[in-house]
Amino acid sequence: MTTTTTTRPAAVPGARMEAEMRQQPEVLAALVDRWPALTAQVAALTDGAPPLGVAFLARGSSDHAALLGRYAVELRTGLPTCLVAPSVATAYGRAPEGFQGWLLVALSQSGRTPEIVDLARRYADAGARVVAVTNDGGSALAGAAHLSIALEAGPEVAVPATKTVTGQLLALLALAAGLAPGGFGSAGLTQAQAAALPDAVARVLADAESAERAAALLADHDRLAVVGRGACYPAALESALKLQETTGLMAHGFSTADFRHGPIAVCGPEAPALLLAGSGPADADTLDLRDALAARRAPILLAGAAPEADLPWPALGHLGDCVTATVRGQQLALATARRLGIDPDRPAGLNKVTMTS
């Protein structure tokens, strides 16, 4: 009797990450559908009176989303904002004070990071109104908040966060719109503008070849700078993080303005620069870096709305550029990891939930 053995095909490296990336247009479209409800809930939380200020509490990718939140709130409302330093309370033992009348926006994709949950409760006790932005509406963080914005992105299994990050970005743009329904000029994002994002992201995801060509350059180097300004600055930080955790490359994210003040010196023939430049008023400054980088003989990858971009995305003309830029960064990290023979679904020494306390 003869027996045959069936061999299962090896899993494609990064299959989970790629599958979750491809769900982003659907996740974003669902958030756009909820836009009127989300903005109304935020407006109701403040009882028609703006808070004295808005503080953001986050770690990791959520911290990068919080940075976009700061831009959106400051542009839309003019309110003072800050990023909370968790260690002030957790390591140094300083209880939060002076936040009566403030809004605290606590971000955690899982909603289970002990440090974020604990601090959300402490800030609520200090008089802040707390908004939780998390993928799990039944999480401990959601339970500690006065208002929970659940991303409802479905399970995210891959260690590199993708759909929950872009979901957070759009949720924070909705939050800013809810804080000031009239807005200031053209600042912030309208529902109509948000509605164009799912298609823009789908177009980026459909263009995998650009990312594969760019990955061929990055795979020959072990360090790089990722640079952006304005809406693209949070995306630069997030793209650098995605490259770090999926490939092990020494990638660092910089504000264009800060990059000019010294870090540009790290770039040269062996250290390329990835420039993120969308279609906003801060992006011309990033494009202007090309001459200085060329003088240093640094390889340059340009991602953005310019016709000559190596990694293009549609010109949006608003803070939504951060979403498309972030997706391009995810795509590049995945392609680079695969080119290096690394499975980004199993990054060494990393877990899905980081249990800081």
Rank of each mutant, 00 (worst) to 15 (best):
A225D: 04
V226S: 03
V226W: 01
V226R: 00
G228R: 01
R229V: 06
G230P: 03
A231C: 11
A231N: 12
A231Q: 06
A231R: 05
C232S: 08
C232Y: 04
Y233R: 15
Y233V: 06
Y233S: 10
Y233M: 12
P234D: 12
A235I: 01
A235F: 00
A236F: 07
A236M: 10
A236V: 11
L237N: 03
E238P: 04
E238Q: 15
E238F: 05
E238A: 07
E238K: 14
E238H: 07
S239K: 02
A240N: 05
L241P: 05
L243S: 10
L243D: 06
Q244P: 02
Q244T: 14
E245A: 09
E245F: 13
E245S: 07
T246A: 14
T246W: 12
T246D: 11
T246S: 14
T247I: 09
T247H: 02
G248W: 00
G248C: 02
G248L: 02
G248P: 00
L249R: 03
L249M: 15
L249C: 05
L249K: 02
M250D: 08
A251I: 01
A251H: 00
A251P: 00
G253E: 01
G253Q: 03
F254K: 03
F254E: 04
T256R: 01
T256N: 08
D258H: 12
D258T: 13
D258P: 09
F259W: 04
F259V: 07
F259H: 02
R260D: 05
R260M: 10
R260Y: 05
H261M: 05
G262R: 07
G262V: 12
P263K: 09
P263V: 09
P263G: 10
P263Q: 10
I264F: 09
I264G: 00
I264Q: 05
I264S: 08
A265N: 10
V266Y: 12
V266F: 11
C267W: 14
C267F: 14
G268D: 12
P269S: 15
P269V: 15
